[in-house]
């Protein structure tokens, strides 16, 4: 049966199929070539360069693992790695706030569209302009933040010049900028929860808190998961804010992130081999996080035919 099918199938298929395959190959050629030249090749080159003392110009001498062992004792790298992770503390804060806001918006409240637009404006605003703005807002004497704190009787610090306040300052700004995005995704998720679930919970006499724990939270869990992962991926690559607001990496390097340090080592100090090793470490961290996303989150899975 199988051979019979194949025999009748083949000649009919081959003419059109060949033409179709040729067209398909042609259509995907551009992204494929782009991928090979601008992703795959640089990717392997990065790994190779991380084992050399390359300075971007001269020859690349193989130095084994020494770049990686140097990383472990490089205080600046460790500090920038710590700072990068520390600033991710803003992720749970931002998600909690945006979920609460989305739940508020999900009630029948006037002006939902206006609220959505206003909360979303910082998201579409250029990060460079936002960084310039917040650097001015954090000015110790005349900045918006301290002038506001003054109104309620608090004498605010010189946020960006103080090693204890520079990271919280950046966290607040990041939360502010990203709030609209997570709120929007949460709102979309909340709106897709069937009303029926809450109605039957009401019949069972469940209170508000119980309804949140047993209905709302499980229903928005995929969105939470998605947001946590994408926020970690983006957070791991934080650069613009640091470059503009604290061009030297902050007091005692207390706001420098990994990408900031890579950028400085590679393009200021021309230690490209060493910087490549850092970029490989960063890539590995992000790769692992992304892998977790693809493995655990069913919602982000997609069908291959």
């Amino acid at each position: 049966m199988a051979t019979k099918l194949a025999a009748t199938d083949k000649p009919r298929k081959s003419k059109l199929y060949k033409k179709e395959s040729r067209a398909a190959m042609l259509f995907i050629l551009s992204p494929l070539v782009g991928y090979l030249i601008f992703v795959l090749y640089p990717f392997f080159f990065s790994i190779y360069a991380s084992f050399t003392n390359w300075n971007g110009l001269g020859t690349m001498n193989f130095v084994g693992l020494s770049n990686y062992t140097k990383l472990l004792t490089d205080d600046y790298f460790m500090k920038s790695l710590f700072n990068t992770f520390f600033m991710m503390l803003g992720i749970p804060i931002g998600l909690l706030l945006s979920l609460l806001l989305a739940m508020g918006l999900n009630r029948k409240i006037p002006g939902t569209t206006a609220f959505r637009v206003i909360y979303y404006i910082p998201v579409v605003s250029s990060l460079a302009a936002i960084s310039v703005l917040w650097q001015w807002a954090y000015n110790g004497d005349y900045g918006l933040v301290n002038q506001f704190l003054d109104l309620i009787g608090i004498d605010g610090p010189n946020w960006l010049q103080n090693k204890d306040t520079v990271k919280p300052a950046l966290i607040i700004m990041t939360v502010w900028k990203g709030l609209g995005y997570s709120m929007l995704l949460y709102l979309a998720a909340l709106q897709s929860v069937p009303k029926m679930y809450y109605e039957s919970a009401d019949l069972d006499g469940a209170n508000k808190f119980k309804k949140f724990i047993h209905i709302t939270w499980p229903m928005v869990k995929p969105v939470t998961f998605f947001l946590v992962i994408t926020n970690i991926i983006n957070g791991a690559q934080m650069f613009t804010e640091i470059n503009i607001m604290t061009p030297t990496g902050g007091p005692e390097f207390s706001s420098a992130t990994v990408v900031f340090y890579i950028w400085r080592k590679a393009f200021d100090n021309l230690q490209m081999g060493y910087a490549s090793a850092m970029s490989v470490v960063l890539g590995a961290i992000i790769f692992i996080v992304t892998l977790i996303q693809f493995k655990l989150n069913d919602r982000s899975s997609f069908e291959i035919d």
Partner: peptide, 12 residues
Amino acid sequence: MIPYPSLMIPQF
């Protein structure tokens, strides 16, 4: 899955 900072040095 590959972040731009991991590619930027060779690309440069």
